[in-house]
Design a protein around this nucleic acid. Structure first.
Length: 597
RNA sequence: GGAGCCGUGGUGUAGUCGGUUAACAUGCCAGCCUGUCACGCUGGAGAUCGCGAGUUCGAGUCUCGUCGGCUCCGCCA
């Protein structure tokens, strides 16, 4: 028998191929046995084509009768035009069919526990537990493959782009040193160094800076990163960054590069033209106007400070908040004046999740302002408020009074919720922006010290460096975030390249000289050997692909993702290991001791 | 660490006020059917209702616990 290796992909056959003798490999997507003729939908990565097996072909007809879903087969035959009236316009290959004259079963298959056929929603509706356990079957679904193929095109486009721009892709270690600050590390015990541990990188940060010291000048990497923190829909414990770093540059160089990269990417992947330059927003302004450092600019509904409108009112809650350096902020939800008590309670609970103590509201209906708190305000005060927030008849004004960050964050969450409920978020729009001038430090109450907002290697803005000594909390950072549609897509900074500055930052963060030397001595030393000014950025590839595919969850764009509890249902990761293995790496587990106590 | 939602044949769901035979669709198996394409028709098998306690004459249904999944807060420089 001649070769069974495919000559064509199923989904690519067209009328132009009529008369061609082809050999196909793939999975039986569906079998339709009409009692005489048998139709097979044969599926491979490229799509489906209909195969016809006629009873006259006795040998292969007998085989075709035994075929079941997901059997792996080889079919040889001639591409033929379908008879008049039996064309399928819903299928790209719908004008043709393959008349089988050879058919062999390469492998049989048990009945799949999930639907591979996603012609209907049922495939996507199968419980995710089952789909994660049988991930290899879930991956056969065209919708899944589409995401992975798009992801491939994204990384390919980015590699080409950065290569054209003179970047060198360099791999950095996966086994590296645990460093303080930041997320929890995944630890790997060392067998040959008893009691010592490697850590998996949270990002290649230090290595990419050392590559700049090493004179590479332009580096990038599609880098796996690991953070042992709790998961979210857009957070996996291992994820991928598009990581890059450049020497002899400033912020503008990075912005230009990234904007050009995004323009290229959205054009090639989605056929969407992005507008440049991307808008820039100061961190403080973003918080004030949107209650978020990653605002979604696809809709308005901005936060409005009404502190001065309410400070003279009879409402004690507002007055107290203002007296204690707090603020009163509001948003206007158009057309929501008829919200029920229950709906308002729901919004109130949302606000409280973000630390707000409550949520006040004003409903503008029947030409009046209706609200449980209306009695504390004069008609004139109410008019001032509704005017300030530009509320009209039929609108609902939501008000949070609290310490500034809490008030804004809570109301920012409400802004997002209301926009979603009211359908104000347009699909197919991509609103990029840069957030700039982040604070360099924030004071961590729990730790009782300053911690870096971005990371410890971020340089302060030159004009703010005089403040380092006296008021570290007021120093702004040479750092920036790239935000897209309310998602933090990337984060970067111009780094410190002077030893003295780096030591000062460590000192402010509460590291003693000895600690700094022990943890980061190699970096400090490197800075003494001609380190160029440098900076860079890292983009979350998974998040980028989520937006490009419209995925609601990161699991949809990762081939083998983890569950919310950081496990893999297919392989059963993580798992216990043999006591011998533990002994070899000098580890004794106390996991069970806790439960016994 | 905390909150919420979910868990019923392979899969997706229904299951009333707690009432004895757990329903429907799809998938699966068998038979019939020569132009279907989510083929059709007929018949059949398939569930101790996630697990464990408790309340009750009686629990898929109520209570408590536990496990798993998902979403969110904290956390994620």
């Amino acid at each position: 028998m001649s070769s069974w290796i495919r000559t064509e992909y199923c989904g690519e056959l067209r009328s132009a191929d009529l008369g061609k003798k082809v050999c196909l490999n793939g999975w039986v997507h569906r079998q339709r046995n009409l009692g005489g003729v048998i139709f097979l939908d044969l599926r491979d990565r490229s799509g489906l084509v209909q195969v016809v097996v006629n009873p006259e072909q006795k040998e292969i007809y007998a085989i075709a009768e035994t075929l079941r879903s997901e059997f792996v087969i080889m079919v040889k035959g001639v591409v033929s035009r379908r008879p008049e009236g039996s064309l399928n316009k819903d299928l790209p290959t719908g004008e043709v069919e393959v008349l089988a004259d050879e058919l062999i079963i390469l492998n049989s298959a048990k009945t799949p526990p999930i639907y591979v056929d996603d012609s209907h929603e049922r495939a996507a509706n199968v419980d995710e537990t089952v789909r994660l356990k049988y991930r290899y079957l879930d991956l056969r679904r065209p919708a899944r493959q589409k995401n992975l193929i798009l992801r491939h095109r994204v990384t390919k486009t980015i590699r080409n782009f950065l290569d054209e721009k003179g970047f060198i892709e360099v791999e950095t270690p996966i086994l590296m040193k645990s460093t303080p600050e930041g997320a929890r590390d995944y630890l790997v015990p060392s067998r040959v160094n008893p009691g010592k541990f490697y850590a998996l990188p949270q990002s290649p940060q230090l290595f990419k800076q050392l590559l700049m010291v090493g004179g590479l000048e332009k580096y990038f990497q599609i880098a796996k990163c690991f953070r042992d923190e709790d998961l979210r829909a857009d957070r996996q414990p291992e994820f991928t960054q598009i990581d890059l770093e450049m020497s002899f540059i400033d912020q503008e160089v990075i912005f230009n590069l990234l904007e050009e990269m995004m323009v290229r990417l959205f054009r090639e992947i989605l056929g969407v033209e992005l507008e440049r330059p991307f808008p820039r927003l100061e961190y403080g302004e973003a918080m004030e106007r949107y209650g978020s450092d990653k605002p979604d600019l696809r809709y308005g509904m901005e936060l409005i400070d009404i502190s001065s409108e309410v400070e003279d009112s009879e409402f004690g809650v507002f007055r107290n908040v203002i007296a204690n350096q707090g603020i009163v902020v509001a948003i206007t939800a158009p057309g929501c004046s008829a919200y029920s008590r229950k709906e308002l309670d729901g919004l109130s609970q949302l606000a409280m999740k973000y630390g707000a103590k409550g949520l006040a509201h004003l409903a503008l209906k029947d030409g009046q302002v209706k609200s449980p708190i209306a009695k504390f305000f004069t008609p004139q005060q109410l008019a001032h408020i509704t005017e300030k927030v530009q509320a009209q008849e039929g609108d609902l004004v939501l008000i949070v009074a609290d310490e500034p960050t809490v008030a804004r964050t809570a109301l920012g969450a409400l802004r997002q919720e209301m926009a979603a409920r009211l359908g104000l978020i347009p699909e197919g729009e991509y609103k990029f922006l840069w957030i700039v001038n982040f604070p360099l430090f924030e004071f961590d109450q729990e730790a009782g010290r300053y911690v870096a907002v971005h990371h410890a290697f971020t340089s302060p803005l030159p004009e703010d460096t005089p403040l380092l000594e006296e008021e570290p909390g007021k120093v702004r950072a040479n750092a920036y975030d790239l935000v897209l549609n309310g998602m933090e897509l990337g984060s970067g900074s111009i780094r410190i390249h002077l030893r003295a500055v780096q030591e000062e930052i460590f000192r402010i963060m509460g590291l003693t000289e000895a600690e700094a030397k022990e943890k980061f001595g190699f970096l400090l030393e490197a800075f003494e050997y001609g380190t160029p000014p440098h900076g860079g950025i890292a983009l979350g590839l998974d998040r980028l692909v989520m937006i490009l595919t419209g995925a609601a969850n990161m699991r949809e764009v990762i081939a083998f993702p983890k569950t919310t509890s950081a496990t893999c249902l297919m392989t059963g990761t993580p798992s216990e290991v043999d006591p011998e293995q533990l002994q070899e790496v000098h580890i004794k587990s106390v996991a069970n001791r806790k439960t016994l106590l």
